[in-house]
Write a protein that binds this DNA or RNA. Sequence first.
DNA 1: ACCCAGGCGGGCG
DNA 2: CGCCCGCATGGG
Length: 298
Amino acid sequence: MEKQSDYGPAVNVNVKDFSLRHTFESAQPLTFYADYSAEMNMLRYASDGIPMLVRSHEKNGGAVISAYGQKKKKMAEELVKRFRLDDDMRSIYKAISKDSHIEGMIKKYRGMRLTVNDPWETTVCFIISQFNNVKRIRLIVSNIVERFGEQLAYEDGTAIKSFPESARLTEATDNELRALGTGFRSKYLINAAEFCTNNIDLYKLPKNNYDKLKERLMEIDGVGEKVADCIALMGYGNLEAFPTDVWIKRTMEKLYFDGKKVKPRDIHEFAKDYWGKYAGYAQQYLFHNARTNKEQKV
DNA sequence: ACCCAGGCGGGCG
DNA sequence: CGCCCGCATGGG
């Protein structure tokens, strides 16, 4: 590893309540393919054509986030948007701290942020996520970036690839995608690439209208209720979304339904009443806690 | 060997 | 509508 300064000039952002490690480990789109070093607390990825190296120095409840790359202003904007640095975590924590369960999780994973990712990138990631596990999702998404991503370079020439746009993936064949490990999801990806390139503009969807946004996203092949919730939350930043996967279902039944089996619809209804406009944040803490406590490496 | 993983679409009643 | 099934793949 060369010196960080070889990657380009630095821009620094000061925030409270930020943990790069907890954010990376909580399995969100960027973290499926970005290169993270726990030792350095550092993330490498390219966003919107800009190669970035992000380091976070965290102490006493605050953090200095530094990005090294070639466009300081763009990088600062990227950091604020991607990691939701404008969120006042104190007030969000206060709003969702409805019981000792959530309080404990906030204490354990304080600083874990939701991320806001490119809508198309998020769509691909969560189509791949279905009937799959996080380790394999990381492998498959990384394979797609390596195979179809645009080749870019840091200031010192170090190579990095960006997430491929939908038009690029319309050129992919079923066999090529299956070779990357996508399995039965390959046809969803092919249909989604075509649809998102020619039939729907993901960048003009009503991101603040939760019901309408989900309805439009579910027009995409391979996108159902749960994946649409993930895209709404992590692709559009709609915090009302409460993705209910197997982990959330289990932990919600255990903590809030007296161990009884309930349907996702009941969980959604509960979450909306209980956590309201910040339900999505509660979900991410519940999800990460459930996975971490099971010590599942998958 | 068997079970599970950030589910979905299609078919049937 | 609700329910049930098959689906690729690798790790525990």
